[in-house]
């Protein structure tokens, strides 16, 4: 009479199958991509490749200056975007009553997030390179990237801050804690994993960017001597080797592999940090 508990209606089985299938498909795409990179790239990938100067327009030699430029541009980008994003996210998350200009800020962020990166590149070329006189430089590229990742960073950070239970606000206010202490001692630590996730998201986008940087940081292959030098990031390097340099494919694949490893390292580092922060009660 009673149907076995294990027996599921066919619609449930179909749903489970569809979801599992979608997940497997995605994993499959990732591994295919990885294999496609590793197969031609892994040969000849050595410490020497990441630590020496390129030769013959990148066909031969290593990618040391490219890695340095990438990290410098990322550094400039984060130095500007992290404080601005955190401040804006805190402001937006604190707004319970929805001030009109908080709504406007949100709307403009959503619009900015939808703007193609090449448009940010043109904006950066006009504002940072020309108006501010930075020219093709790591500084201009980093600032442009900062503008580009800000909308993502802010929305992700705001969501993280909003996810902190409202009870903490009530408890803190009932104890007469200042807003400053509530934020510093309770909310930010509680939201730290989400904030770090926002950071990783932004870093991934910044590292992946090519179009916006072609107009702003340029593609000079020298080792940069300052932030006002032009420099080429890994993504730009891959693009250049693949499109403009005959016989550059091998090093393009290797560079792509290095980019992937770099992303993986940053990802792991932030995850570990986030686990440490949330797992250990602060003393």
């Amino acid at each position: 009479m009673i149907r076995s508990l294990r027996q599921r209606p066919w619609s449930d089985s179909l749903l489970a199958l569809a979801c599992t299938g979608a997940a497997l498909l995605l994993a499959g795409i990732f591994f295919f991509l990885l294999w496609d990179l590793v197969r031609p790239g892994i040969g000849g990938l050595s410490w020497q490749f990441v630590s020496t100067l390129p030769a013959a327009a990148g066909r031969d030699g290593g990618i040391a200056p490219v890695i340095v430029s990438t990290l410098l541009i990322l550094g400039v980008c984060l130095a500007l975007s992290v404080p601005v994003a955190l401040g804006t996210a805190i402001f937006l998350a604190q707004q319970q009553r929805g001030l009109p200009w908080a709504a406007w800020t949100r709307r403009s962020l959503d619009l900015l997030a939808a703007v193609p990166s090449v448009v940010f590149g043109l904006f950066g070329a006009v504002v940072f390179c020309e108006l501010l006189g930075l020219g093709y430089s790591i500084a201009a590229g980093g600032l442009t990237l900062a503008c580009m990742v800000l909308p993502f960073m802010i929305r992700a950070a705001e969501d993280g801050l909003r996810a902190v239970p409202r009870e903490y606000h009530l408890a803190a206010n009932a104890l007469g804690l200042s807003q400053y202490r509530l934020l510093g001692a309770v909310i930010l630590p509680a939201a730290a994993p989400a904030l770090l996730a926002a950071l990783v998201l932004a870093i991934a986008r910044a590292l992946a960017e090519t179009a916006a940087l072609l107009f702003t940081s340029g593609y000079v292959l020298r080792m940069p001597s300052s932030l006002f030098d032009s420099g080429r990031t890994l993504s730009v390097h891959i693009y250049d080797l693949a499109m403009n340099v005959n016989g550059g494919e091998r090093n393009a694949y290797r560079s792509a592999l290095v980019l992937l490893v770099l992303l993986l390292l940053i990802n792991t580092a932030t995850h570990t940090l986030s686990r440490c922060l949330s797992g250990k009660a602060r003393i």
Binding site: P165, E167, Y168, P189, A281, I283
Partner: peptide, 9 residues
């Protein structure tokens, strides 16, 4: 509603 901190804190 204790804060997500240590008992002492």
């Amino acid at each position: 509603n204790p804060f997500p901190l240590s008992i002492r804190r």
